[in-house]
Amino acid sequence: MSVRATARITAVRDARGATTLPVLESDGPLALRRTRAVVPGVARVTVVGAMSAPLGGDRLAVQVRAGQGARLTVDSAAATVALPGPGPEAAAAHYAITLKAEEGAELHWLPEQLISAHGSELHMTTVAELATTARLVLREEQILGRHGETTGTLLSRLTVHRAGRPLLDQQLAYGPAAPGGWDGPAVLGGYRAAGQLLVVDPAFDDRGPDARLLGATAVLTRLAGPAVLVSVLAADARELRAVLDRAAEELAAAARGRAPAAAHG
């Protein structure tokens, strides 16, 4: 049996300036837990994969909204493994993430890796709608195949709009059902772990880090807007995370250096 499930999170800023969670709806395999905040004043929600998902044929969705001035971090307890559905003719699985951040909101979307298991097919979409003064930190990591197996098919699209205008639109297609050349010298070059860290911050409008290499297969780029994108290819998940973590720390330090401490109260 394939599963349809939509989990919802809404974070709002209350009268005292703290972030509360009036909506925290788990559904099917998507269980949500309010977890202890790492940063004071920031609400944290962890997606706990109660069952193995997504399986072929499943339609999963997570909808996150950070209201005006709210500060929310969403992470996950474990990697998401895309698995083939039952039977030889199983349909693809669909996973749709929508992220909304209103004026002054700060949203961190930091799930664990997405692993594309042999024989699986997953269509993933992530759509972020940001108000002009909203901040977003988004990490995504794709691991092509579990240890020692060939990858499944992974089609994904990440679309970010800021103030209603397109900021980033990016599609990826990897695996046996992708068009040719995905594993070749223009696209992945044999690497099995691909990841990105996107930081959208209105303060980047005036000054932000310039484009630079972070290694032979890692680069930090400025988008055509107040945002930075770190793109990394690596041999495996551990190496990938190490590069993304270093970049995240540097960008966070740069943001702290720029913003007055009161902005984080």
Binding site: A173, P179, G180, G181, W182, G184, P185, A186, V187
Partner: peptide, 8 residues
């Protein structure tokens, strides 16, 4: 290379 570039 060309095939990968073409389809992306």
């Amino acid at each position: 290379f060309c095939r990968g570039r073409l389809h992306t």
